[in-house]
Design a protein around this nucleic acid. Sequence first.
DNA 1: CTCCGGTATA
DNA 2: TATACCGGAG
Length: 356
Amino acid sequence: MQKSLSRWFKLNGRQLPWRETNDPYAIWLSEVILQQTRVDQGMSYYLRFLDRYPDIFALAAADEEEVLHLWQGLGYYSRGRNLLKTARRVVEQFDGCMPRDYKQICSLPGIGAYTASAILSFAYNLPHACVDGNIYRVLSRLGAIDLPIDSTEGKKIFQEEANALLDKENPGLHNQAIMELGALVCTPRMPRCTECPVISCCAAYKLGIHAELPVKRAKPEVKHRYLTFFFVRLLSSDGNCTLIHKRPGGDVWQGLYELPLVETEQAASEDELYRRVRELLPFAGNDALLTGPLFSLKHALTHQQLHILFYFLELSADQYTDDAETAFKKIRIEELDQYPFPKPINLFFESDLYFL
DNA sequence: CTCCGGTATA
DNA sequence: TATACCGGAG
């Protein structure tokens, strides 16, 4: 496995300027430029930076504005600002030498786990396994590992996997070889499996699932819910009353109160609302007078987008009978503020529209 | 249009 | 743990 990989890398690896050097400064510079950036886009920036700032002292002496100007077009400009900060700190605190210690190098701005391992292994040949997007892909396929690469557990497992696989004699070459394999052969789409030097070790290929890997955490798909609340006004001699309902558990707003509610999967038509409101409030009869929507709003929760409407429903008090009062609580309108309501319903109350 | 990606930060 | 940062590719 190691042998086929390193032979493949020697024959097929691209010749890139940052691979022709052991200079930690040049390697750091290239790694920061290549974060979130393709080789063919980053190359000219790397050459310009190295030309303008041949060593870390030259960079440390630069103006931020000048650095950002050179960075222009690369995106993620905090990388450029952190580049300068780190150059200055390395000059001040480490005499211009990139630290050889993982914790120390990680403490520098813009250097995280990946970049630290890359610098330490490429420049100093220290045994640190890097894990970048290429390596997630290669490792997930080699071992047919379907843990999400962006989950806490997945990150831990893939780092351990990379550590276990690391060639401790040649950590720099090893890290670069796997990344190059990911970039040239084990690509996100249409991997060139027939050209792969380690196909015989690839569990995903054997299982025919290489196209399904790596797995990412299912992004919590936002569910849309359409909630229509009915502000009921019961006209009676002892003052105007309305109906409220305490929400059960197992859903949002557990234990809070709400108005009579019709929920639908899509935006409800006027006809559907009439039908549903007669089911919900049978005592309203067929001549229920519905007006609205009075008020609408969207309410975003983590995994839900609520589309909320408020309607007004006027009934005379004799239409409301107590035996129907299993689900609803009849209260005087002035008592509304004695009950806890979810934010969207309070917003409706505060809108004053329900007095109309 | 959506997806992708290291690091920092809340 | 989630999200902002950016530009390029599909």
